[in-house]
Simulated scan of single mutants.
Amino acid sequence: MLAENYELIETIMLYGGLVCLFVLMGYAVHDVLKNNDVPMIGRVVTYGVLGLGALGFVAKGIIEIIWLSTGV
């Protein structure tokens, strides 16, 4: 296989792993919040922080794609 194929597979596996980790963190947070009867504002803040963390990784990926397409 070519080096380009290895890089593509590595990138796909990295982002797939990050998605899996965020899903698992979401399930863990949901379980903790449900078992401890957290008020709605606490749930909104908690899910917001987790969502912003995931959004940061999405933004990083989009910026990386834009930079690579322009040759930076």
Score class of each variant (00 low, 15 high):
51 G>A: 14
2 L>E: 13
63 I>R: 09
36 N>R: 14
31 D>N: 12
38 V>D: 08
12 I>T: 15
44 V>P: 04
11 T>H: 15
47 Y>I: 01
66 I>W: 02
4 E>S: 11
42 G>F: 02
23 V>D: 03
8 L>G: 04
4 E>T: 09
65 I>M: 11
67 W>P: 00
7 E>L: 11
56 G>R: 00
25 M>T: 01
52 L>M: 10
15 Y>M: 13
20 C>S: 09
15 Y>C: 05
8 L>W: 09
34 K>D: 15
50 L>R: 09
9 I>D: 14
57 F>A: 02
6 Y>A: 11
37 D>Y: 05
67 W>M: 07
22 F>L: 03
65 I>N: 10
17 G>V: 08
36 N>K: 13
46 T>D: 03
38 V>E: 12
49 V>L: 14
13 M>K: 15
57 F>T: 08
55 L>N: 05
32 V>H: 13
49 V>D: 05
13 M>Y: 10
13 M>G: 02
59 A>Q: 01
8 L>I: 13
63 I>L: 09
34 K>R: 15
42 G>H: 06
49 V>S: 08
58 V>H: 03
11 T>A: 15
60 K>T: 02
30 H>I: 01
33 L>Y: 07
26 G>H: 03
56 G>V: 00
12 I>C: 10
33 L>V: 14
69 S>M: 07
27 Y>W: 03
60 K>C: 00
28 A>C: 01
36 N>L: 08
68 L>F: 04
16 G>Q: 04
48 G>R: 07
5 N>D: 12
22 F>G: 01
72 V>E: 09
60 K>G: 00
29 V>Y: 03
24 L>V: 00
51 G>L: 07
20 C>D: 07
24 L>T: 00
31 D>F: 12
70 T>K: 11
64 E>S: 08
47 Y>Q: 07
22 F>P: 02
6 Y>C: 07
37 D>W: 03
52 L>N: 02
57 F>R: 00
44 V>I: 15
31 D>K: 12
3 A>W: 08
40 M>A: 14
32 V>W: 10
30 H>F: 08
11 T>N: 15
3 A>D: 12
15 Y>I: 11
54 A>I: 00
27 Y>A: 06
2 L>Y: 06
52 L>A: 12
64 E>R: 05
52 L>I: 10
68 L>W: 03
6 Y>R: 13
60 K>L: 02
65 I>A: 12
4 E>P: 00
54 A>T: 06
50 L>E: 11
14 L>V: 11
7 E>F: 06
49 V>F: 07
48 G>A: 04
2 L>M: 06
36 N>F: 03
15 Y>W: 14
41 I>Y: 11
64 E>M: 01
33 L>Q: 15
48 G>F: 02
22 F>D: 05
1 M>G: 13
62 I>Q: 00
55 L>C: 08
37 D>V: 04
38 V>R: 12
20 C>P: 01
